[in-house]
Design a protein around this nucleic acid. Sequence first.
DNA 1: GTCTATAACGAGATAGAC
DNA 2: GTCTATCTCGTTATAGAC
Lengths: 203, 203
Amino acid sequence: MPRVTSPALATGTPPGTAAQVLDVAERLVQTRGFNGFSYADIAAELGITKATLHYHFRTKAELGGRLIARYTGTFRAVLESIGASSEPASEKLARYARVYAEVLRNERMCLCGMLAAEYSTLPPPMQQEIRRFFDLNEAWLSIVLEEGRRAGSLRFDGPAAEVAALFLGALEGAMLVARSYADPARFDSSSARLLNDLTAPAK
Amino acid sequence: MPRVTSPALATGTPPGTAAQVLDVAERLVQTRGFNGFSYADIAAELGITKATLHYHFRTKAELGGRLIARYTGTFRAVLESIGASSEPASEKLARYARVYAEVLRNERMCLCGMLAAEYSTLPPPMQQEIRRFFDLNEAWLSIVLEEGRRAGSLRFDGPAAEVAALFLGALEGAMLVARSYADPARFDSSSARLLNDLTAPAK
DNA sequence: GTCTATAACGAGATAGAC
DNA sequence: GTCTATCTCGTTATAGAC
């Protein structure tokens, strides 16, 4: 028998089983890694069987792929939202960093940062989607950085793409290390310093 | 029958089974993660049985602990070597970054950076050793940074410990992302930029 | 769409012979 | 110090009833 039959409300999508599975799986990947959880973990948490999981996501690789796709989609929407605002580029970068800080405060690592560690053990389709996530972030960052440099709110030398790569990597690494100390303030410190180097700045 | 009975030479320690196991396991952790390999992988590569592995390392947790201990010890020696030189602090930092670049060129992630991703799945003794590794690195970096600021070869604001944390995290993150692209040059770019921000610098 | 049951395999670990 | 043999459990995945 179906466990939950919540009706589709006018507002928002109801939490169908597939969505609930994605929610739990996402948290497990972000905290334990793709090789650090099993279908049994998800099933136990939702009170369903592993067989039901396989009905919604035939294989773990497929679940992983859909996980990244959803995460990237959500992220893209956030980036577009921040990008569309009329704030100075420096503030857009600060808001971007705050997104990562929020993830960390939930005791999680960036989904794709976590998967990047396990990269060589993942199926090629997942690998490709991970790179796409990074590409998306760096492309967005490059645009914001260039915009800030033109407007004078940011100062840096060389290609914006290089600064974007540094910024992204530094945030990912700051999350990675801060998590070992269960200390979000560690991340905030590095984040603020990165921002400051781009605004106060050079020479 | 014993597979290899290489005599202990006057120079260096012969590659006993335990050391060979550590070598293989280290590479597997750095490329696949602690949850991404098994005793069977090591045994197959060395042509021994899993039982033999358990003789040298009773549990996988013990193997993991000894792995970090050896890695930290090697790292400590490298840091002391760099620290003892009479080069300017900026060059010491550059040499430090080159150590990471070398790891990446071997298609590996920093051992403890990798383990930091899997942190929440690891036994507490391993967790503590991971933090010790980061502590060691940040303490060393703090000293070098302070030394460089006093001597005038480095310029930065605020506590050296904060800059050390940023520097360490940024290198770890740069490795993490660069590995997904199999592109060491990505790391070199971020690394050079970090160094430059500390030497060319602020305001 | 969810269940029970089970297949098929790999994991970490141990006993005991040599 | 290394082996063979085995145990126990967890893993992904499938078949078929409801």
